[in-house]
Design a protein around this nucleic acid. Structure first.
Lengths: 354, 354
DNA sequence: CAAAAAAATACAACCGATTGCGTCATTATA
DNA sequence: TATAATGACGCAATCGGTTGTATTTTTTTG
């Protein structure tokens, strides 16, 4: 039993395929009687439109391509989840590809998406990509492109990100408010803009609160859990060890927390900690890890709606920069003064502009 | 600047599109000289095959469809990650859809995948699906179908799952070995086979170790975190409260852990806990949560390779049942006797059969 | 009731590859 | 040298819809 086509329906009703096609898409110039008849037969034959054929002729696949470093980090999977929801609501499907943070895979993923003729692409740049020419080419070739979180300033490219600077600033300021005076920073790959901004926000907060910015308190790494542990080992050997840590990633923060505990340090009394990302587990550890929430849901939804807009207004579209204001979720790991007991105090807000 | 087609290449070289097509696909009956010339022009024109057109003609899209309840649970996102890896290695792309555990969305997702003419489908059944006819139809219509984790026994359908019974049995037996005698079970929706099997494994372990199976110790829920908390509240009011919990989900286990701590109970001394799923956070909480690992990586890889095989051996394929043996990851939450200090003791193995 | 206007449907090209088969040019064989 | 056997490529149909335009049918109008 082959799949039914519009030709089968047309033959059965002794009308032409074009009429069937129009009837199915509710074209105004087809009579109600014909439409009903067509739908009836279509149902009976279990007809399902062949989107491949439709895409070939119409030039629209109704597919969105997504390139992320990996799907199994809760931040990315949450973004994906929300992209998919928005896409489906607009009749689009989503193709997911992973770069494993490698430039080569990133390139070949883009290639595959281009071959599949997706209508638009949403991506977050691989950690080890040195060169963004593949993205720039993409954008220049007219494919709507939206970068999120790990972005780069490219022509014809929209961006959805959080204000990393501000997130870092607020996190650091929060630690200062809690009475911390020697605050260390676990920084990420400075190649990525997000980690640069976080470092800058951290430094600015120190300066504006009249604290010195001691370079020996900044520890650079790949922000994995182990990096947090080794970072602490180093820092604790300083003549004047830190009384707080602001980590650019929750994983590093957790590693730091584990190592500190192993050394008998109390958190937050001896060392307060703030992470970044607000991963699921932050609320499960003890004490709860204060963290900067990246608004993955909004990010996914905005990335999707932006690329959809860009698709529909094809030529005349001005790339959009959306910068969300992250939200500091305060938990036990940083709360020296017991101001609130519910364990969640937050600064928030979000802005969309230029 | 329009996208280049094989016609453009053909025109430039004064040969026919069919020759170009064959040259690009390295057809043996095209001369090396022509192939080189074609590739050179293709590169220069930045040609990229239009897979939509190729798919229409050849009847193969080289796309796999995936239906999961959600992408933002680490188990599913890990499976997805591995599916994608295997798929890409074989020249396939992956379309992801989410059912949100709803039957209606699950149906419409399948519909979308069918319209897109994916070559095969990998799915994990939605929690609230009462009726699996949409999957059976799918399989009957000849689309290669592989179900994983949350499976159902359907015709023409391959299955990749873990031995939930055994996982539960080992988990429970482990608790018994640790000296626990009143072991409660936080069970999931019995509609789903996986939760039934876990309950059965739990009961079997009790029986075979000469322990009574007390129905009041089994608490049914949707296995969310809150269900763990409320479950504990109930159980602790029993005249003879449990000294151990085997939860069908890590989330419930965490909830239980939190509630127990809030009541001043020590873990594992007063109450030992074992979860199921081995989510990332299990190693971050304190004490570490002993859990049954579901081998998400293997599951993803096997699901993908199975559906790929099924695609290539289309007609003659006998559905395969793959049952993986889960692995109990022992951590602090269940370790009363301090046998090993590394915090990880495990039973393991994996079998492929039937 | 004939002509004009509107409504409904038919015709046919097209999207960009793939592929079975036919054809011509070479080379090998007798 | 005539003929068979290869090799290399061209021809044209095809996949299943979509869509601009032509045509027929129906309704409206004078």
């Amino acid at each position: 039993m082959q799949k039914a086509t519009i030709y089968d329906i047309a033959a059965e009703l002794k009308i032409t395929p074009s009429t069937v096609s129009r009837a199915l898409s509710d074209h105004p110039r087809i009579s109600g009687r014909t439409k009903r008849a067509v739908r009836e037969v279509a149902d009976r034959l279990n007809y399902r439109q062949n989107s491949v054929a439709a895409a070939l002729r119409s030039g629209k696949t109704n597919m969105l391509g997504v390139v992320v470093p990996t799907t199994d980090r809760s931040f990315f999977s949450s973004v994906i989840r929300n992209i998919e929801q928005v896409a489906v609501a607009s009749g689009y499907n989503v193709m997911i590809t992973q770069s494993n943070d490698e430039e080569e895979l990133e390139r070949s993923n883009i290639d595959a998406l281009l071959k599949a003729r997706v209508d638009g692409i949403i991506a977050s740049i691989a950690k080890w990509s040195n060169d963004y020419s593949h993205f720039q080419q993409l954008a220049d070739s007219g494919v709507p492109l939206v970068l999120f979180d790990r972005v780069a300033e490219l022509n014809r490219t929209s961006i959805v990100r959080i204000d990393d600077y501000r997130g870092a600033y607020e996190a650091t300021a929060h630690l200062i408010e809690q009475g911390c005076r020697r605050i260390a920073h676990f920084a990420g790959q400075q190649k990525l803009d997000i980690y640069q901004k976080r470092l800058e926000g951290y430094q600015a907060a120190l300066r504006e609160h009249g604290l010195p910015t001691d370079p020996s308190l900044v520890h650079y790494s790949n922000v994995k859990l182990e990096d947090g542990r080794s970072g602490i080992k180093q820092l604790m050997q300083l003549p004047d060890p830190p009384d707080a840590i602001f980590a650019a990633s929750d994983y590093t923060a957790i590693g730091a927390m584990q190592e500190l505990k192993a050394n008998g340090k109390r958190i937050p009394e001896d060392v307060a900690i703030v992470g970044f990302m607000n991963e699921t587990f932050t609320s499960f550890v003890e004490p709860g890890l204060t963290s900067v929430d990246q608004l993955s849901e909004n990010m996914g939804k905005l990335a999707a709606s932006t690329v959809l807009e860009q698709i529909s207004s094809s030529r005349t579209f001005a790339p959009r920069k959306v910068i969300l204001t992250p939200k500091l979720i305060v938990r036990g790991s940083s709360q020296k003064s017991q101001i609130s007991t519910n364990g969640q105090k937050s600064i928030s807000g979000s802005s969309v502009g230029e």
